[in-house]
Every structure is written in C-alpha cells, then in structure tokens.
Amino acid sequence: MTITDHNAPLKGLVLCGGFSTRMQEDKSNIQYHGMPQWQYLVTLLQSLLPEVYISCRTEQAAHFSGYPLLIPDSVPYGGPSAGLLSAHALQPETAWLVIACDLPLLSVQSLELLIQSRDVSKAASAFISPVNHLPEPLIAIWEPTGLNALEENVKAGRNCPRKTMLNSDIATFNNPYEIEQFNANTPEEKAAALKDLTS
C-alpha cells in the first residue's frame, strides 16, 4: 500500500548518523528483528511510502553501499538537525516522515497512524512523548515550512528540532501504541527491548 499526499510529496527518512556513544555500538546495526535496525526501519517505511532514504554521516556512506537512497550529511551542523536539513537541502519541496534508528519496538501501525494524522497545513505532525509529554521530533512528519524554520533556528545557534517544534504551529496527538516510541540508547535499554520483543 502506498500513501500519497495532496501537497508536498511525503518520503521516508531513517536517521542513522549518530555516534551511538551511550550504546557503545552502532545503533543502526543492532539486530532486534533478525536484520540490522536500519534495514528493518527502511522495510517498514517502504510498505507505506514510495521512496525511503537513509541519513548518515559522510564517513558512514560505505556502510550502506548496498542501499541506493543515501543522504550523507551536507550541512555544517551536528546532531539530528544535520540529517533533517541535509534531506531538506536535497529536496526542499518534500515533506519527510523521519524516524530515528533507536526505535526497536516501532511497527507499521504507529507509522500508519502518523501518516493518517498528518496535517499538511502545519509545520509538522508529531506524536506526544509518553515520558515528558513533549512532541517527538524524530518520529514525526516535517513539512517544508517546518524544516525552513529549523534551518533558521540552527543558523541562529538553536540546534534543537524539539525546540523548533515547540515554537512552531504543529499538529500533535497521542499514540495508542505508545510503547513503540521507546528509545533504546544504552545497553540496558537494548536488553529491555530485546526482552520485550521475545516475551
């Protein structure tokens, strides 16, 4: 099933450019589902969207050489903003369904809900975090207007996607499958996710 949009075309973006310092291994390579996490997330998005890209640091590109749709960081910023804005620079008229690679419990049901709840009149559409009750910037749909705002903020030294969301007109909603928003950033969280997946 392919879901298309009436305004900006919607494409997928899997963020794999982090350094995984706390995890002590590349989070995009962890196998929670019998394959590297990046491949699992790409497969989820491919079931819903016509094009799915991987965001990575330039030096990581060879690691994904078998996958044709790569967006190496091309902007002088760090963190997840680098991935978001590199994609925006490449395709400025595209809206991006962005997911971080540290979401081991994510399934297609949350992604379907996110797409169905998209409000193209807003800067972004995002789930609310069940942990801090703030918008989740890295499991969200960013419209071109939202990415324009992020770019302006980053240029001004405000390199935080969530703060851009908090200061923009966005659509937010609760995910009934909130466990799927669990982030695994440490070995302990990895173990908890694996236990949940096998229980």
Rank of each mutant, 00 (worst) to 15 (best):
S47Y: 13
P176T: 00
D169Q: 14
A156V: 07
T43S: 13
P68C: 04
A62Q: 10
S125H: 09
S28R: 11
N29I: 10
E136P: 07
E188N: 12
Y177T: 02
N174C: 08
A95E: 08
P36T: 02
R22K: 15
P9W: 05
S81F: 07
A100N: 15
L105V: 03
V98I: 08
T21S: 06
G146L: 01
R158C: 12
Q31K: 12
E51L: 10
N183E: 11
F127Y: 13
L85Q: 00
P76R: 02
C101G: 14
E93A: 08
I30Y: 09
L85T: 09
F64N: 00
L150C: 04
E136M: 14
D73S: 07
Q91C: 10
C56T: 02
D119N: 10
I139Y: 03
A62R: 10
M35R: 12
A191R: 14
A191L: 12
S117L: 11
F182D: 03
V131I: 09
T172A: 02
Q91I: 09
N132I: 06
M23A: 05
E189S: 07
N183G: 07
L147F: 01
Q24W: 10
S20P: 07
L113Y: 08
A140M: 08
Y77I: 01
A191N: 12
G18F: 07
I3D: 14
P68Q: 00
T4H: 15
L15P: 06
I179V: 08
A149N: 09
S47I: 11
H33S: 04
N167W: 07
G83T: 02
E59K: 06
H33M: 06
F127W: 08
T58E: 10
R22S: 14
T2V: 15
L103M: 07
Y32R: 02
A124R: 05
T172S: 02
S110D: 04
T94M: 14
C160R: 10
D26Q: 09
T186W: 11
Q116W: 14
K122P: 12
L134T: 02
T164K: 00
L69Y: 13
Q109F: 09
A156L: 13
P36F: 11
P135V: 04
A95Q: 08
S168M: 10
N29Q: 15
Q116V: 15
L45R: 07
